Amino acid sequence: MENNSNAIAEIQKKYAGCNLLMPAATEVQLNPFYKITVMEVTADLSENSGDIFKVGSVKTGTTQQGKDIWEETYSPAKPLLMKIAAAAGIQFDPDHTYGTKIDANTYKAKAYGAMRMPDGTGKTHADEKVICLDDEEANYRVEFMDKSIKGITDEKAAKAAAEMFKGNWIDAKNKWGKACKAYVIDDCDREKYIERSVLVNMTLLRKTAAAKAMTGAILRVIRALTGMKGQYTKKELQKPFAIPRVTFSPDYTDPEVRKAMLSQGMNSIGSLFGATPTIAAIPDTLTGGEIDEFNPEEFADNPAFASEQTEDSDVVDEEQEQNWFDREQPTAPQQDVRPQQEEYACENCGSVISEKVYGYSIDKFGRPLCVKCQRGAH
């Protein structure tokens, strides 16, 4: 089978000056009809990439002295999850992916996604995300209180806070475990720092709460459909995420495939218009056991089958027909089609009487009489 590979190394070498947005793929033809495509997505592990964020640490072993060994763990963020969803071919149903506002401070979003598994079957999952502004405000308050006491480790945030609030610099470690300078807020400005920080973040959250809830629901569906873990070590994230997919892709260069496709096409036409009926041959028993294989071309010059018709016979027949129609046809005498009037006669003398006299005589005397006989009947 032909193996068409555009692995990560080859793509990075060919497109070294480009920002690659699509995942790399490796295609292998499993058989003449199906191929498997493996999509590869690599996570950017740099601090400011946004692909991952630190969630904690896990115990990975112990030293010879009996001390525990801890390793930091990270979770895939939205940019990485969306790249994985594109590689896996996850589709979201717009009719069942929506957000609603429960009350003034609560938003709920639902997402319904589906993807095709390597065996060709479909897999679906639905999830939801609820954001309560009251709970988020409490979380912000705790977060900035911890920062004001333990120190602000982010360099830009610490310098900005030092310009606005009183405090002092201390040696500390940032969230990546690196040594840095942290700024601790004095007690006199601590409450002001917390309130202003909460106000700024809550103002932004109130504008984006609905979108944030929808994003959270979608990311949960992606994690569930792909079976991703909640957290990974950096060593695990150095490996690319591979998503296999099986698709119907006939190899038209294979003669067997072309033959099968042609047969299928002919069968589909037969299914549409119906198969042509086969005319059975007449058995010899019905024809007396002999079949007359008379060929008329062999007897074309035989005088026994000569006809008296000439080549101009058709023309003669047409002239005769035309002359017959042109001749004047005798006109039949017209007959009087007027209805005949019934005649009435007098019972005594036999003279003809009119219809009115007949009717009057029947009513008066009970028999047909002429006017003269009616006078004598009085």
Rank of each mutant, 00 (worst) to 15 (best):
residue 1 M to A: 13
residue 4 N to M: 10
residue 4 N to L: 09
residue 13 K to W: 00
residue 14 K to V: 00
residue 14 K to H: 00
residue 15 Y to R: 01
residue 19 N to I: 15
residue 21 L to Y: 05
residue 29 Q to C: 13
residue 30 L to G: 06
residue 35 K to M: 07
residue 36 I to N: 02
residue 37 T to R: 05
residue 38 V to M: 00
residue 44 D to P: 06
residue 45 L to M: 15
residue 46 S to E: 09
residue 52 I to K: 02
residue 57 S to H: 02
residue 58 V to S: 07
residue 59 K to C: 02
residue 60 T to E: 03
residue 64 Q to R: 13
residue 69 I to Q: 01
residue 79 P to G: 01
residue 95 D to V: 06
residue 97 T to L: 05
residue 98 Y to P: 00
residue 100 T to L: 13
residue 112 Y to F: 08
residue 117 M to F: 06
residue 117 M to H: 07
residue 119 D to W: 06
residue 119 D to F: 06
residue 121 T to N: 12
residue 136 E to D: 07
residue 137 E to Q: 15
residue 138 A to L: 08
residue 144 F to M: 04
residue 152 I to H: 02
residue 152 I to P: 03
residue 154 D to C: 01
residue 162 A to H: 05
residue 164 M to N: 05
residue 173 K to N: 10
residue 176 W to I: 11
residue 179 A to G: 12
residue 181 K to G: 07
residue 191 E to C: 13
residue 192 K to C: 01
residue 196 R to M: 04
residue 204 L to T: 11
residue 214 M to S: 06
residue 218 I to N: 00
residue 223 R to Q: 07
residue 227 G to S: 13
residue 228 M to F: 12
residue 231 Q to G: 03
residue 234 K to Y: 10
residue 234 K to W: 06
residue 235 K to C: 05
residue 243 I to Y: 04
residue 247 T to S: 09
residue 252 Y to E: 13
residue 256 E to A: 08
residue 262 L to Q: 10
residue 265 G to R: 08
residue 269 I to R: 15
residue 272 L to S: 11
residue 272 L to K: 11
residue 272 L to C: 10
residue 276 T to G: 14
residue 284 D to T: 07
residue 291 I to T: 10
residue 291 I to F: 10
residue 293 E to V: 07
residue 293 E to C: 08
residue 295 N to H: 04
residue 299 F to L: 09
residue 301 D to L: 03
residue 305 F to D: 04
residue 305 F to K: 05
residue 312 D to A: 15
residue 316 V to W: 15
residue 318 E to Q: 09
residue 321 E to L: 11
residue 324 W to C: 09
residue 334 Q to F: 03
residue 335 Q to E: 01
residue 336 D to G: 01
residue 346 C to D: 05
residue 351 S to C: 13
residue 353 I to A: 00
residue 355 E to L: 08
residue 357 V to I: 01
residue 359 G to W: 00
residue 362 I to Q: 00
residue 370 C to S: 07
residue 374 Q to I: 11
